[in-house]
Design a protein around this nucleic acid. Structure first.
Lengths: 166, 166
DNA sequence: CCGTATCCTGATAGATACTG
DNA sequence: CAGTATCTATCAGGATACGG
């Protein structure tokens, strides 16, 4: 680890590094596992309450609280969606700020794929246009970046696990 | 959100998307805020127990538990460090797997900088060699990537906040 | 079908006090 | 300086039951 401070924050003025740290602030928001599972489902395109409950495998009260938190934090919102031919419905969506969580979400996935999965990752994220696999990268170089609108999620057919691994 | 599944996992075999999801598995590991604050301090180069306690602003028992969890998960380890001229000491370090959390950590920071900070980010991460600012990017392109060993953290002189903002 | 109120339980954090 | 053992307070999460 060559990561180092130009000057040590804690050596100045008696205030610690933690003050104002963006990572710490985010954690106040995304504190719980349930909240993060809701974000995952939002990225997967889940829009209806009961689907959040079932797919994330959490209780209805927990889902309710988590979604409310995300709305308060302006990460999610409910919009009235009017499907042609059926009556209007409210559905959950990521806000712009919510979509910006994509790198966080993918970075977490990527780490889990590398360090917690036995074989190949269960899901692969690719550019919708080209089918090229997407990765999160730390770099100073300017590259063309993808947003969550451009992404398609593929099920890895080689993945073993499934019902038995539950 | 055009993110979509090639085939809907939950429509097959009665097993939900959550099963085996890497993000969910990571969250079992990095579950608590304290654990993540310890990871932050490890990236900042903190090595000694009391410094973790003071800089993260948590109690000693909480720090002890969190660091033990991280060791169990092979994210952190204690190594005997022998500084020339002084006697050997144990110190906390990130393992290889721990260093691989850099994109998660930076993505979290970056989101917080954009969406939770009033003005400019308190800290800037730059390539040690070139001084170029590092960003987390989602892209299919292959680019030269930085690891935590190549990074220097700079205090943004323009950042307002400090002692009063606590 | 979309939630929410209530109650109960388990996990997590701080305070305190103590050991190598 | 580097932890750990209790103990207690708080809080997230599930079960259950209920209203729009």
């Amino acid at each position: 680890m060559a990561m180092r401070f130009e000057e040590r924050l804690s050596d100045r003025d008696g205030w610690s590094i933690g003050d104002g740290c963006s990572a710490a602030r985010v954690l106040d928001l995304l504190s719980t596992k349930t909240v993060f599972l809701m974000v995952r489902e939002l990225f997967y395109g889940t829009t209806r309450f009961d689907d959040f409950v079932e797919r994330a495998g959490v209780s209805a009260p927990a889902a309710s609280r988590a979604l409310k938190q995300l709305k308060a934090a302006h990460v999610a919102e409910t919009v009235t969606y009017h499907a042609p031919g059926s009556r209007a419905r409210e559905e959950y969506r990521l806000t712009g700020a919510g979509k910006d969580l994509l790198p966080v979400f993918l970075a977490l996935m990527q780490w889990g794929d590398t360090h917690l999965q036995d074989g190949r990752p269960p899901l692969v994220f690719v550019e919708a246009d080209t089918g090229r696999e997407l990765r999160v990268r730390v770099t100073p170089d300017t590259v063309r970046e993808s947003t969550s609108d451009d992404i398609e999620i593929r099920v890895n057919p080689a993945w073993r696990g499934g019902p038995t691994s539950r």
